[in-house]
């Protein structure tokens, strides 16, 4: 099938390949092993990193309570979204799940409508409890039950 629209398609020179040369086929397992060792050494810091994110979320919620404008709402969304991405890396998968539910809520309620603050606060409190009790197990029954209920409430709020 002939292309009729003006599309310029070209292959830039592969400067990266020229720089780094050829590697053995497949993944560089030695480098991966080194990285895993380095990450394991950092793992002791992860709980403190998660604490920083929890504090950041609570501060963003407090700021939104005082000044509920577009900027503070965006900051609250960023805090929830960061936590969704980072908490599982820091070995708190259930915090990541609840933060995912919270960022969905904040991100999908139209900007011209008020956020359901009770539901926002239920998420923030749950995250705080999961962190406080160091519930790092993704199959923790209490955390799972709370997460499922919050997700249901978010679905209902977004209908």
């Amino acid at each position: 099938m002939a292309r009729q629209q003006p599309i310029e398609l070209f292959m830039p020179p592969n400067i990266l390949k020229a720089k780094v040369g050829s590697g053995a086929p497949g993944l560089d397992l030695a480098a991966i092993k080194r990285a895993e060792t380095a990450m394991d050494k950092m793992r002791g810091e992860f709980a403190d990193w998660a604490a920083t994110d929890v504090d950041k979320l609570m501060a963003a919620r407090a700021r939104f309570g005082k000044t509920p404008d577009a900027a503070s709402r965006a900051a609250l969304l960023r805090a929830a979204h960061d936590m969704k991405g980072q908490a599982a890396t820091y070995d708190f998968p259930m915090i990541a799940r609840v933060a995912g539910s919270l960022s969905k809520l904040i991100g999908e309620v139209p900007e011209n409508k008020d956020l359901p603050l009770g539901l926002v606060d239920a998420h923030v409190s749950t995250i705080h409890v999961i962190y406080r009790d160091k519930l790092t197990d993704a199959s923790n029954k209490m955390a799972m039950a709370l997460s499922s209920e919050l997700e249901k409430q978010v679905e209902a709020a977004l209908k």
Partner: peptide, 13 residues
């Protein structure tokens, strides 16, 4: 490794 070994062509429209 993908950006090194399998770079994509560029498109200009």
């Amino acid at each position: 490794q993908s950006v090194i070994e399998n770079p994509r062509p560029f498109v200009r429209t």
